[in-house]
Amino acid sequence: MTLDIEALLKQAPELIVTYGIKIVLAIVIYIVGKWLAGLLSKLLEKGMNARNIDPTICNFTKNITYYVLVALVFITVLGQIGVQTASFVAVVGAAGLAVGLALQGSLANFAAGVLLVLFRPLKIGDYVEAGGTSGTVKEISIFCTIMTTPDNKTVIVPNSGIMGGNIINYSTQEKRRVDFIVGVAYSANLDTVRKELQAIASEDERILQDHDVTIGVAALADSSVNFAFRVWVNSANYWGVFFETNEKIKKRFDAQGIQIPFPQMDIHIAKE
Results as ranks from 00 to 15, higher is better:
residue 141 S to N: 13
residue 179 D to T: 14
residue 170 Y to M: 13
residue 147 M to W: 09
residue 20 G to C: 06
residue 154 T to D: 06
residue 59 N to I: 07
residue 163 M to T: 08
residue 126 D to E: 03
residue 135 G to W: 00
residue 228 A to N: 14
residue 71 A to N: 05
residue 234 N to C: 05
residue 61 T to E: 03
residue 151 D to K: 10
residue 83 V to N: 08
residue 63 N to C: 00
residue 144 C to S: 15
residue 79 G to C: 13
residue 90 A to D: 11
residue 147 M to V: 14
residue 55 P to W: 01
residue 62 K to W: 03
residue 125 G to H: 07
residue 1 M to K: 15
residue 232 W to G: 03
residue 50 A to Y: 05
residue 250 K to P: 07
residue 249 I to V: 14
residue 78 L to Y: 04
residue 24 V to D: 11
residue 124 I to Q: 08
residue 186 Y to A: 04
residue 27 I to F: 09
residue 262 F to E: 06
residue 102 A to M: 10
residue 171 S to K: 02
residue 4 D to C: 06
residue 132 G to E: 02
residue 59 N to K: 07
residue 90 A to K: 09
residue 187 S to M: 09
residue 17 V to A: 14
residue 196 E to T: 00
residue 129 E to R: 01
residue 263 P to Q: 03
residue 89 V to I: 11
residue 75 I to G: 05
residue 256 Q to L: 13
residue 151 D to Y: 05
residue 153 K to H: 11
residue 145 T to I: 10
residue 106 S to I: 08
residue 205 E to F: 13
residue 209 Q to N: 09
residue 157 V to M: 08
residue 80 Q to D: 12
residue 250 K to G: 04
residue 103 L to M: 12
residue 24 V to M: 08
residue 96 G to R: 04
residue 115 L to E: 13
residue 245 T to V: 08
residue 162 I to C: 02
residue 248 K to W: 00
residue 89 V to Y: 00
residue 161 G to C: 11
residue 58 C to R: 01
residue 72 L to T: 06
residue 198 Q to G: 05
residue 206 R to G: 04
residue 14 E to A: 15
residue 117 V to Y: 01
residue 57 I to M: 12
residue 86 A to V: 14
residue 213 V to D: 01
residue 254 D to T: 07
residue 119 F to K: 11
residue 22 K to E: 06
residue 36 L to Q: 08
residue 77 V to G: 05
residue 194 R to W: 04
residue 209 Q to R: 11
residue 174 E to Y: 12
residue 223 S to Q: 11
residue 63 N to W: 03
residue 178 V to S: 10
residue 96 G to M: 06
